[in-house]
Design a protein around this nucleic acid. Structure first.
Length: 744
DNA sequence: TACGCCCCAGTTTTT
DNA sequence: CTGGGGCGTA
């Protein structure tokens, strides 16, 4: 391995600095993953460090798997058994070993947001919190923030002793946490917080991992929250072999507790830290990168760095104003078709938006045009009802203490165990201080139900007992199929006529396939590991880059990805930046970072579009163009006009057809809108119209003087001309932009 | 117990 | 406009 040849000098520095604290500030597209993988390979191959002494943490399974595969290709299969995983997977793995020390059992269940919601509803009911004055969402938010900041329920209560409202929430937090424990369950935030707790309360455990992980690496460090920060710090504070990689300009998860000061203050935390900046961008052409830079430059709270592209200037980014959101989608899709005809594949396009709700219009249009697309986000596979149902069965079998799942499926499919019966079972469980499943197993003894109820409950109990027995005999996939048949779940769906239920059957089939895949890949397949995998994956993990389809997703989801051609849509104040962002400086800065992330996804072509009017929550709103558009200097962008005056149409012959298609839509004036937004578009001389230009035409440029057109080429939405100027030589210019006029 | 109607809220979400 | 949840009625 000749790292010097494979990496540029900064990358090389970063990959070969192994001992001591290291901060790699890696700008967008600067080859960060490359550095990380070579760094690990270098440690193993050249430095003789054992692969088992390393801990590499990422935020997504996708990133972890990619890194693992790349390291496998460099150092071989040993990489498969390395600790290269997400915060949550690593912590779950640690907790499985030692969580009994905190009073949980090692087969704990991981609760997702849905499970948290249902548990929180129980909590609110039990603690008489009026849903009118306390929303379940708010309380979950407060608890999540507390956990991310490592504040325990009792600390929270103490901290807010004199605040009635917060006190009530504190009580909910206490009860919620109690119930989680009774269910032998952890929510996502617990996974980190409990690991920290384990390390702090049991120094022997901490010591074990400190010794094991002699070298720790954290990717996307700008997105760590306080709990994650603390965890990393606990592990590394002694040997200080910590390498963090990140880009403060790409910190876009503040709303989820990410603390940008973790990365900004790394040098304070580790005073002898090396800092290496990767500022060469290999991804985006110059105009795109400079557009991104011009936006991010406006932020105050950032580390000093300046990304420079290694590529050409490239085409200017294209700004398009549509009259409506529907027209916006029409434009984007037509543009995709046009560029596709010029030889790009559908898989090279991405449509990025601020909110998932915006995807609809684009889907409709793509579908109409028969263009393949894939939608990332929205309702996720594992959040589908039928999948949650079968998972609930599996969870009860795996963790009999788990009640949220029990409540979910005790009457699914219908077996006449309604709210009333469930209430009696639950009350009895609380009274007897037993878990509900035990009550169900012995329901006659408790004398709380009528005969009809007893029969129904017994039927359910027999099912679960049978499944629990079968767990030992059947593989996970077989168990899944067995449950679907024995409960009658599958039958009910198959007998239904609705197409929705048909797709549910398909999804369940897909779920069985996933189980089979899991069995093939796992060393020792077992139910709770399978469940853990399910709990800790997301849609983006299964995103297949090779599929030839246009990608639709939020800008958040696009982080870490890149596309030759990107459309960022909905560039309007009120949407992006969103209304709330405009009031607060830090929110606006985060929105700018989001814009930065979006722009830097693009390699060759970037479009930004906005609509004069759009439907939001069923109302038509008129948002002004986004401030971000104005932050991009005019020499980097070109305005395309969908509908406007004749002269403008001629400048951009390609846009004419959009204008025509939009007949009947109210015409309006871009410049007016820009002015209304308090922005001034640069007033340049009237530009030439395409029709007037011919090879050999004599033209006059306001700066270069007189010359002759020597070539003319139609490119996307513009015409590129080369002019031989009498005094300044050859220049290549964009017709729509260049201040040219024909002279006789 | 089960369905249907009404009312309400409504960013972003790697886990 | 949507989806979800609460609540009333068959």
């Amino acid at each position: 391995m000749e790292l010097e040849k494979l990496l540029n000098s900064e990358q090389y520095e970063a990959a070969t600095t192994i001992e001591g604290p290291l901060l790699i500030l890696a700008g967008a597209g600067s080859g960060k993953t490359r550095v990380l993988t070579y760094r690990i390979a270098h440690m193993i191959e050249e430095k003789g460090i054992s692969p088992y002494d390393l801990l590499a943490i990422t935020f997504t399974n996708k990133a972890a798997n990619e890194m693992k595969e790349r390291i496998v290709s460099l150092v071989g299969n040993v990489a498969h058994s390395m600790w290269i995983s997400t915060f949550h997977s690593s912590c779950a793995r640690i907790l499985r070993m030692d969580i009994d020390k905190l009073g949980y059992k090692s087969d704990f269940t991981i609760y997702d947001t849905y499970d948290q919601k249902s548990l929180m509803k129980q909590v609110m009911e039990q603690s008489n919190l009026d849903p009118k004055s306390f929303s379940e969402k708010e309380i979950r938010g407060v608890i999540s923030n507390a956990k991310n900041s490592l504040i325990t329920p009792f600390e929270y209560k103490k901290e807010h002793e004199h605040d009635y409202r917060k006190n009530r929430i504190a009580d909910a937090y206490i009860l919620y946490q109690k119930k989680l424990k009774e269910n032998n369950a952890l929510d996502f935030d617990d996974i980190i917080m409990k690991t920290v707790e384990l390390f702090e309360k049991h120094k022997d455990v901490l010591e074990k991992y400190r010794e094991k992980f002699k070298y720790v690496m954290v990717d996307e460090y700008q997105d760590t929250n306080h709990a994650q920060y603390k965890l990393v710090r606990l592990l590394t504070i002694e040997h200080k072999n910590i390498c963090v990689v990140g880009d403060d300009d790409q910190s876009i998860y503040k709303f989820r507790g990410a603390d940008i000061t973790n990365i900004l203050d790394f040098e304070k935390d580790f005073p002898d830290a090396r800092v290496i900046k990767l500022e060469k961008n290999y991804r985006s052409v110059g105009s795109i990168l400079n557009a991104a830079n011009s936006i991010i430059r406006m932020n105050d709270n950032r580390s000093d760095k300046n990304l420079i592209t290694t590529r050409d200037v490239g085409e200017k980014l294209k700004v398009y104003k549509a009259p409506t959101d529907v027209a916006e989608a029409m434009f984007v899709v037509s543009e995709i078709e046009k560029i596709y005809r010029d030889g790009r594949k559908y898989g090279e396009f991405a449509i990025l938006y601020r909110t998932n709700a915006q995807s609809r219009r684009f889907e409709e249009r793509l579908m109409k045009e028969g263009i393949p697309y894939r939608l990332i986000g929205g309702v996720k596979f594992y959040e589908r009802k039928e999948i949650k149902d079968i998972v609930a069965y599996l969870r009860i079998i795996s963790n009999p203490l788990e009640e949220v799942s029990l409540r979910r499926i005790i009457n699914v499919p219908k077996r006449s165990i309604g709210e009333a019966t469930l209430g009696k079972l639950s009350d009895r469980a609380i009274e007897a201080e037993e878990n509900m499943l035990d009550i169900i197993y012995d329901v006659e003894k408790h004398d709380i139900l009528t005969n009809r109820g007893i029969n129904a409950v017994n039927g359910f109990a027999d099912l679960i007992k049978d499944f629990t027995k079968k767990k030992e005999e059947l593989s996970v996939s077989e168990l899944v199929e067995y449950i679907l048949v024995e409960t009658g779940y599958l039958k009910e769906l198959e007998e239904s006529k609705s197409p929705e239920d048909l797709s549910r059957v398909e999804n369940l089939g897909e779920f069985v396939n996933l189980a089979i895949e899991y069995e093939k890949s796992a060393e020792e397949p077992n139910l709770f590991e399978f469940l853990e995998n399910i709990a800790l994956v997301s849609d983006i993990d299964s995103y297949d880059e090779d599929e030839d389809a246009v990608t639709l997703m939020t800008i958040h989801s696009a982080k870490g990805l890149e596309f030759p051609a990107v459309f960022i849509v909905g560039m309007e104040n009120g949407l992006f930046p969103s209304a709330g962002d405009l009031d607060s400086k830090s929110d606006l800065e985060e929105a700018r970072r989001l814009a930065y992330v979006g722009i830097t996804r693009a390699e060759d072509l970037l479009y930004m579009t906005y609509a004069e009017s759009r439907m939001v929550y069923g109302r038509t709103v008129n948002y002004p163009p986004s401030d971000f558009l104005m932050d991009i200097p005019n020499n980097l962008k070109v305005f395309l006009r969908g509908s406007k005056t004749k002269s403008r149409r001629k400048v951009n012959p390609h846009t004419l057809k959009y204008g025509e298609r939009q007949q009947g839509v109210k015409d309006f004036n871009l410049d007016e809108i820009l002015e209304r937004a308090g922005q001034i578009i640069d007033s340049k001389p009237k530009n030439l119209e395409n029709m007037e230009i011919e090879l050999g035409s004599k033209v006059k440029h306001s700066a270069f003087g007189e010359g002759t057109i020597v070539s003319k080429e139609d490119i996307t939405n513009d015409v590129k001309v080369t002019v031989a100027f009498d005094s300044k030589g050859l220049k290549t210019l964009m017709l729509s932009l260049a201040p040219l006029e024909v002279i006789d």
